[in-house]
Design a protein around this nucleic acid. Sequence first.
DNA 1: CAATATTGGACACCAGCACTATCCAAAGTC
DNA 2: GACTTTGGATAGTGCTGGTGTCCAATATTG
Lengths: 204, 204
Amino acid sequence: MQISELARRAGVPVATVKYYLREGLLPPGELTGATRARYGEEHVERLRLVRALLGPGGLSVARARAVLAAVDAPATSVHQALGAAHRALPEMGAAVPADLDPARALVRRRGWRVAPDSPALLALAGALEALHAAGSPPPEALLDRYAEAAGRIGEQDVAEVPTGSVADAVRFVVVNTVLLEPVLLALRRLAQEDASGRRFPDGD
Amino acid sequence: MQISELARRAGVPVATVKYYLREGLLPPGELTGATRARYGEEHVERLRLVRALLGPGGLSVARARAVLAAVDAPATSVHQALGAAHRALPEMGAAVPADLDPARALVRRRGWRVAPDSPALLALAGALEALHAAGSPPPEALLDRYAEAAGRIGEQDVAEVPTGSVADAVRFVVVNTVLLEPVLLALRRLAQEDASGRRFPDGD
DNA sequence: CAATATTGGACACCAGCACTATCCAAAGTC
DNA sequence: GACTTTGGATAGTGCTGGTGTCCAATATTG
């Protein structure tokens, strides 16, 4: 198929497809002449993935490129690939937290073993600092419950990873890590809404 | 104190403080002359809150304005105020999901009572659609576990809300809803990292 | 075979966002 | 009285995620 059909199939303007090709989010089609290239089913899927990562996933183009590079890279082991995918995915607050200790303490209380320079650890420290600066330092007990709930989720995320093919595993991890985030946040808000309705019953 | 001291105290450039004043994120100081205004401690706190919402909280200026308006609005009941704050906080995917049913079904399975037009419900539907489009439709069981974990968190979020003053309650809800999101996401990634290390033990 | 349409590729351009810089006259400060 | 700072207004910046326009080369159609 040609670019116009590819664009139509994924519901994306042709100009935007060209943009993604330029940005390296989409692999080039097979050239069949100076002004003709052929695209396949896999391009349609990839394009849909790109749209999902950029839109609901909330990734920037640059981050999506890094993430997709991790997806494409031939990996040797699942764990290694997961690590690469995770590292490509910072996306979290860019602020450089001054004090990692509260985050480290929380992780230690859970008994989690994580890399000392894990981006998520930095993000956690930054988020805790922001809460402090905003005048609402969260009590330890609350954080522990958050961590417990997050632990369940992370456990389950990893348990679901398919072990058949490394490539499949990586794709699975990337898609689920990114695209289940909005799901989780939306569910939290819905749960809050429900709980609020039960705790403060009135005619809104 | 004057604008320069306010800016210094919060670690923000003066030009940026002026910008926030223009944008209505920060209430104007008390004018003491044509070219002089006085700011108080509450401006420092508010400015820090604004920075936390815009930076780690990930809100846009427009969204932050809406959220802060909800914080400032004199509310009559806690539940009402929470609803207003929640509604000011969409921030979630702007895509208009075509099919709300999967999201509704998930909420119903949990027994949650939420508004049928809740922004979070739309966000959930959109996120589920994105997963589908990306070729990784999540199994129901996985979603149910996510919902269960989210339920615990939402429950706890609401349980912590102070009931003394409505204003305090609103501020608490807004700050915690927004600023605990990055905490939760970071914790999930850390839990994934830990679980991955346990499931796929090797020398990274 | 000629008229028309489409393509890949290059480049310029655009709108929105969060600031940032400059300027000004009025008002403090030393 | 010189110097600095202020609030307020306006314009400009850098970045991001696209769009629009143009081109010669190639299909496709009549």
